[in-house]
């Protein structure tokens, strides 16, 4: 009797095992090729150089790393890239993130016009960046200066065509289009909060801000942490739509790490000889990004609000 039960259990487990592995095996294979192998190849590539005459790659030691570090120290475009990348990340952190949470709270509390605002906030995620960039570019450069002159009598330069205002204009664009998915996920997370918790807080006299601060924020904190932790990596990968605005013709004042590496591989002047340098640059930046990300995660877990 016991043996029959054991056999049945083993048979059931074998079926489960076959089912389980039949589902996970192909995605794991895909992961091995397009994540593990790609990154392993990236490391190998970083130690190679390309001979344009023979069309062959050969071992180059640390030459690509040395070149990248030398450029980081001396190349004005890369110094600007570091500054710009940090500014874009900080603007998202200091402006984009709190606004996304406040807006989500407003929608979650079903305050006036919440449905309309929800659609509006999500709109830039629906429309392609190439369209929003085109609209923004023409509106900001053609309509703004004319409106400023008509309304305030001020002569305003074209923000995206003027060297000194280009980067701030791009910064504003990036915050402007950044809310979509965040709003969806935050409001989704807020609706999971027990109604009775919010109601009892109300009965105890808490106002909307207190409810947000003491109940909503601690409840959505794990998700906010996810965004914040993942966001640290964006310092090194974000292009801030610079390629969409200017192709590979952006001037040095607009450089970001993401843009620099992308145009080094995809730009019109890019050749196979640029690949090892870009791979080495990527690895060098990964070496900086990993401890930063882990540090941010540990800090947020330690210092975040508790439910």
């Amino acid at each position: 009797m016991a043996g029959t039960k054991k056999n049945a259990r083993m048979k059931r487990r074998a079926k489960e095992t076959v089912f389980y592995w039949s589902i996970v095996i192909l995605p794991l294979l895909q992961f091995c090729v397009f994540y593990v192998a790609v990154n392993a190849n990236s490391v190998i590539l970083a130690f190679k150089s390309y001979n344009t005459e023979t069309g062959l790659y050969s071992f180059a030691g640390f030459a690509n790393f040395t070149a990248f570090i030398r450029d980081m120290a001396g190349m004005p475009a890369l110094k600007t890239a570091l500054k710009n990348s940090l500014i874009v990340w900080l603007s998202g952190l200091a402006v984009g993130l709190p606004l996304a949470q406040f807006f989500s709270f407003y929608i979650y509390k079903k305050m006036p016009l919440h449905g309309f605002f929800r659609v509006m906030l999500f709109l830039p995620s629906v429309v392609s960046a190439v369209i929003t960039v085109a609209l923004y570019k023409y509106f900001v450069d053609r309509a703004w200066p004319e409106a400023a002159r008509a309304l305030f009598g001020v002569k305003m330069p074209m923000p995206l065509a003027t060297l000194s205002t280009r980067f701030p204009a791009i910064l504003v664009y990036n915050v402007w289009v950044s809310f979509g998915t965040g709003i969806l996920l935050y409001t989704g997370s807020m609706t999971q909060i027990s109604v009775s918790v919010a109601e009892s807080a109300r009965l105890e006299g808490a106002n909307s801000f207190q409810e947000y601060w003491h109940i909503t924020l601690p409840s959505i904190w794990p998700m906010a942490t996810t965004f914040l932790v993942v966001g640290v990596a964006s310092i090194f990968t974000n292009q801030a739509s610079v390629y969409t605005f200017y192709q590979d013709q952006a001037d040095n004042s607009l450089y970001m790490f993401g843009y620099f590496l992308f145009q080094r591989v995809i730009g019109k002047a890019a050749t196979l000889a640029d690949y090892p340098y870009a791979a080495a640059g990527g690895i060098a930046l990964t070496a900086i990004a990993v401890p930063l990300t882990l540090g941010a995660k540990a800090l947020l877990e330690k210092c975040g609000p508790k439910e």
Partner: peptide, 28 residues
């Protein structure tokens, strides 16, 4: 037991950023 590995892969790849793998991905 392998669930932990799958979940771990997702979390680790989200947390640990890999920068500049485009040339390698294109080669493969």
């Amino acid at each position: 037991r392998f669930n932990k590995a799958i979940y771990g892969i997702v979390v680790v790849t989200m947390i640990l950023p890999v920068v500049g793998s485009l040339p390698s991905e294109y080669q493969i």
